[in-house]
Simulated assay, not measured.
Amino acid sequence: MARVPAAERRNDLVNAAIQVIASHGVDGATTRRIAEQANAPLATLHYCFQSKELLFAAVFERLAERYREVLVANDVHGDVSATARAILRGLMNWYLKSSDFASATIELISWAQRTREHPAEAVYNAAFKVMRSILERAASGQDIAPETIDQITYVVGALSDGYVMNWLTYADRAQAARQAEVVIDVLDAWLAAKLA
């Protein structure tokens, strides 16, 4: 059997942890179940991650990285309204395509709220920082206050969070696609009122 490099094995274990957390929740994400999902010996998981908390920290890092990638990929380099709309649409599309990431994120945020360090806050702060920088760039040349950029960032985050909870609850792709348009309409109405 060929030896799998440690970095590749860590990556496999993080991906497996996301899938297991999405399917079984944090409490059901045992190291044995995660190792089985990754087709790795349990000893390898313990070699790569000295504790389950360190594995979950790596999962949070992966989630933050993917969120950042989605935000950057949906920067349309337009005005603030067009950019906010594209970011929100991109997030909703990502949640539809990546329900494991969405489920794992919700599970981990609930778990993190019960821990002292609260790593979910770092994920949100990092995502808001990236979104804010994209929107600030889009606002250059426009008379938009920094507080308004912060509000847009919050509204996009709140709308996407509400959307993903609805999607995960009902798991109806056709309904979710229709609801995405409603969510975009809500953002457009809010932006029109705020930026008028």
Rank of each mutant, 00 (worst) to 15 (best):
T31R: 07
T31H: 06
A64S: 13
L55P: 08
V20C: 04
S51C: 03
R33N: 09
A38N: 04
A64G: 14
H46I: 04
H46D: 09
F49N: 06
R62P: 12
N39E: 15
C48W: 02
H24P: 06
T31L: 14
H24M: 11
N39I: 01
V59M: 01
Q50Y: 11
R32M: 14
C48R: 01
L42D: 14
N39R: 10
Q50I: 02
V26I: 12
A58E: 12
I18F: 00
Q50E: 15
A57H: 09
A29C: 09
R62Y: 11
S51M: 02
Y47G: 10
L63Y: 05
Q37G: 05
I34D: 02
N39F: 02
F49T: 05
S23Q: 09
G28M: 09
F60V: 07
R62E: 15
H24A: 15
A57E: 10
F60M: 11
R62V: 11
I34R: 01
G28Y: 07
S23K: 07
Q37A: 13
A43L: 03
A22E: 00
I21R: 06
V20F: 03
E65D: 14
L55V: 04
E53A: 14
T30E: 12
T31W: 02
H24I: 04
T30H: 05
E65V: 00
N39D: 15
T44H: 12
A22I: 01
S23D: 11
K52T: 10
G25T: 02
R66T: 12
Q37Y: 06
A29W: 03
R62T: 14
L45T: 05
I18W: 00
A29Y: 04
R32V: 13
L45D: 06
S51A: 03
L55K: 05
L63A: 08
P41E: 11
A43Y: 06
A58Q: 05
R62H: 14
I21V: 15
A22D: 01
C48I: 02
T44V: 09
A29E: 08
F60H: 11
S51V: 00
E65Q: 10
A29P: 08
C48K: 02
A22N: 01
A35R: 02
E36Q: 14
T30V: 05
T31C: 11
V20D: 00
A57P: 04
S51Y: 03
A57V: 03
T31N: 12
G28L: 09
N39S: 15
A38R: 00
V26Q: 13
L42S: 14
A29N: 06
A22Q: 01
H46G: 07
T44I: 02
S51P: 10
R62I: 12
A43C: 02
A29L: 06
V20Q: 00
Y47H: 12
H46Q: 10
E61F: 04
G28I: 08
F56E: 04
V20S: 01
R62S: 14
R33G: 10
C48L: 03
E65G: 05
E36D: 15
V26T: 14
F56C: 07
